[in-house]
């Protein structure tokens, strides 16, 4: 039997299998990770980069691909201005390169088909990544409970996974997708405009009815504000799971 605990703590050598652009500042990198123990939607990995003289940098990245046993693992990385690791991943990394990775990490901000309850997802900027992994996992598992996503981006060209999200919303009756744009919206835009507030949450039925599981991911201030709204609307605090990408997440919304 494989010991899953040790399996996720162990560093593995991953090979870059593909790199594709999502938006002007966001790329998705596919890694081939031999021996990958599998993951749940919403978990993350750690990457370790080592310079020739031994200098090391490590960062966490959410897994973007849906639950499964691999060996392919996708990460979606936003290029943070002057970012040490995201800058390297964007500018230097090529298909065929090798990089050290370990995971999956975190069992809390994660969706499992064994707990197919009503799901409310709220994302700001690249905070969509772990939530996309949950949506992909749900889709693959044929989840039957309703799911809603409210996704805040600055402008239409900064929406990550836009066509895939549209496709999921069209194909799946139980999935409701709402975008809001906080900076500028093109003419004819039918989604929401402006920052997410209580009125917007209520309008899209992000209400406590049915005791849904709520996942919020994005910049710290975004997550703080939304978690307060949700609790104010009557959600049980223990149902509201949050993930912030940390000080240098610098997620633009």
């Amino acid at each position: 039997m494989i010991d899953l605990t040790t399996a996720s703590a162990q560093w593995r050598v991953a090979t870059v299998a593909a790199i594709r652009n999502e938006t002007a500042t966001v790329k998705t990198i596919t890694f081939d990770v031999p021996g990958w123990p599998g993951h749940l939607g919403g978990q993350h990995v750690d990457l370790r980069l080592t310079a020739e003289d031994g200098y090391v940098a490590q960062r966490s990245y959410s897994i973007a691909s849906g639950a499964g046993s691999g060996p392919l693992v996708e990460l979606t990385v936003d290029a943070v201005p002057d970012g040490e690791v995201s800058g390297f991943l964007h500018e230097e990394l090529r298909v065929g390169d090798q990089i050290e990775i370990r995971g999956p990490i975190g069992g809390y901000f994660a969706w499992s088909a064994a707990h197919d309850y009503g799901l409310l997802l709220i994302a700001g900027g690249s905070g969509i990544v772990p939530l996309m992994s949950m949506l992909r996992s749900r889709d693959a598992a044929g989840a039957t409970q309703p799911a809603r996503l409210l996704y805040s981006s600055r402008s239409i060209d900064q929406i990550i996974y836009r066509s895939e999200l549209d496709r999921l919303a069209e194909q799946t009756a139980q999935f409701t997708l709402t975008h809001t744009l906080t900076r500028n919206a093109p003419s004819g835009w039918t989604g929401e405009r402006g920052r997410i507030d209580r009125v917007m949450l209520t309008r899209w039925q992000f209400t406590p009815a049915g005791d849904p599981d709520v996942y919020v991911c994005g910049p710290t201030a975004f997550v703080e504000t939304i978690a307060e709204h949700l609790v104010g609307m009557g959600h049980r605090a223990s149902n509201v799971r949050t993930e912030r990408f940390g000080p240098t997440g610098a997620i633009r919304t």
């Binding site: 080592t50 020739e52 200098y55 090391v56 090798q98 050290e100």
Partner: peptide, 29 residues
């Protein structure tokens, strides 16, 4: 140790700062 091709690192702060950081950590203001 696997050297990451093309990775140099930004090495913010001086050597003294870096010695004060536990492995895998980075400094934030």
């Amino acid at each position: 140790m696997l050297v990451t091709r093309g990775f140099k690192g930004k090495r913010r702060g001086g050597d003294a700062d870096r010695l004060r950081l536990p492995p895998g950590q980075f400094l934030t203001p």
